[in-house]
Nucleic acid binder design. Structure first.
Lengths: 133, 133
DNA sequence: CTGCATCCTGACCGATACTG
DNA sequence: CAGTATCGGTCAGGATGCAG
């Protein structure tokens, strides 16, 4: 009987992997970017500050909870600023920081790629599906 | 009593939203890219074809199931080719298509951004956490 | 070696209700 | 209007075993 079971070894490998992950900058960014709403918020704020409700309207399909969560995370990462105007009722504006604006430009590059090549991808998909039906 | 409840209206909105999504090329790409493993596979294959097991080794932390799933999806989208050599045991190689290689370059841009700016993001994160502790 | 089917857990997310 | 807390359902994805 081995000192460690296969499962244990795997778990240890996973821990080492996580530690490695925690240090790798590109994977950290990938993690945040892989959040569905992050990119949409970035793009929505491209043309100036917006209020919470305005964002919710522009990003169809987002729940209020997810929107708040996403905004908090982006604020924490220094991608946007959150400014509260203490009127009644309160007014809260969100605006991209220079850093956020910069990332937003990168995201737009991906978007441009998509608009250019997605037809090809869709064609590939169709032919793949046809081949196995 | 309204003809439709709030919940119903929300559900209809969601359906309309989904239909919209299904047509928007950039969001479709975002969807596939938001899959954690997709980008890693693309980058791993940047320097030439690899076998299933080699990929699994290079992408630490991926389960065999997820790897296969990801490879299938990418094959379907025309991003890579899967070639089987009928030896015993079988040998399967995965290689980027020109399309996949092109997308891979875009992904690298994001990666470069991360390596450049993540320190700033981490700093922002620390100061945010400090401010509220 | 590669791939598929099954089971199962836990993370995520939406719905709802309540506060300032 | 903006935000928080809680509950519950869903589903992605990991573990495992088997087949070609």
């Amino acid at each position: 009987m081995p000192v460690r079971t296969a499962a244990q070894r795997r778990r240890e490998a996973k821990l080492a992997y996580d530690a490695f992950m925690a240090e790798c900058p590109s994977r950290q960014l990938l993690d945040t970017l892989s959040d569905k709403w992050v990119t949409l918020v970035l793009v929505a704020l491209a043309h100036g500050p917006l209020r919470h409700a305005e964002l919710a309207r522009q990003i169809a399909g987002v729940s209020q909870k997810m929107l708040t969560q996403t905004l908090r995370a982006l604020e924490r990462d220094g991608m946007l600023t959150r400014s509260v105007t203490p009127t009644v009722p309160v007014r809260v504006d969100y605006e991209l920081t220079p850093l956020g604006a910069d990332l937003q430009r990168e995201v737009r590059a991906i978007k441009a790629w998509a608009e250019r090549y997605m037809p090809r991808v869709l064609a590939a998909r169709r032919s793949y599906d046809a081949r196995r039906s």
